[in-house]
Design a binder for these strands. Sequence first.
DNA 1: ATCCCTGCAAAGGCTTTGCATGCCA
DNA 2: TGGCATGCAAAGCCTTTGCAGGGAT
Lengths: 148, 148
Amino acid sequence: MTKTAAVLDSNTIIESLRDAGYRVTAPRQAIVEALTGFERAFSADDLLQHLSASDPTVGRATVFRTLDMLVSLGLLDRLHAADGCHSYVLAHSQSRHYHHLICNSCGVVVPFESCNIEALYPAVSEETDFQVSGHMLELFGLCGSCRA
Amino acid sequence: MTKTAAVLDSNTIIESLRDAGYRVTAPRQAIVEALTGFERAFSADDLLQHLSASDPTVGRATVFRTLDMLVSLGLLDRLHAADGCHSYVLAHSQSRHYHHLICNSCGVVVPFESCNIEALYPAVSEETDFQVSGHMLELFGLCGSCRA
DNA sequence: ATCCCTGCAAAGGCTTTGCATGCCA
DNA sequence: TGGCATGCAAAGCCTTTGCAGGGAT
């Protein structure tokens, strides 16, 4: 149990990449390093700008390709906020079920695990004649700091 | 109680437009007529293509402007599906709380009202120290026809 | 008669693609 | 060495904006 339990760090991500058969290259390492530094959701462009100041020059295309790759490996989550639909956050866990809670004021994103949406399935099934198999949920609110 | 209860029809939408102070123009009528014909979520482009065959020529800009207007009036819902983030469905109700259930197979969208997400708020608040104030939920599954 | 609304076309973002070169394994 | 990965630039979408003319009220 480390200080920030269950949050992926750059080494773990790089290892996952390698395990999945992808090559560990300098641009990919720079991208992974950068995205573990974000505390809130970031866009491809945020990442691009952040990287423009870093060691290796990373091309636009590489950023998009790497983001897609990380999402497909479950290492990165795509956020579907009300306004911007294309932002990303580091995945919280690859094994446990969780969702995101987003602060309306500062934009910080935290995961939460207490989700009993599946309890809704029977009622919804009955109401709609659907066989429900999945859900997408995001909560909004105010974080502790912003309330203060 | 009509056959398809609580679903907005084109006349109701047009009246709401008028009530909100917007002018009732031919392009707007054509757009409203077209979108009440869709059974599943549609994109701006779907609408545009559908309209290219209709009576008045409706410009791209007008379609986007009208969609935004209808969404802001609560007559149209923006859907945030996993893949495409920019599709629309006719609003189900302007007063009641509901969400969308989307068929993974045919894409049909139906609303459902049995949502007790708010019951989650206390547990999530305690877990995260957020003051939760809203949520976004979408369910996925198989509709009756697709199961058959 | 007002001035909101429209179409057109151009501009603007964001994302993807093609291709020759580079570099990890 | 082989072939995945990269950068660059161009192309591709999708959406918005500017503007002069048109139509609803």
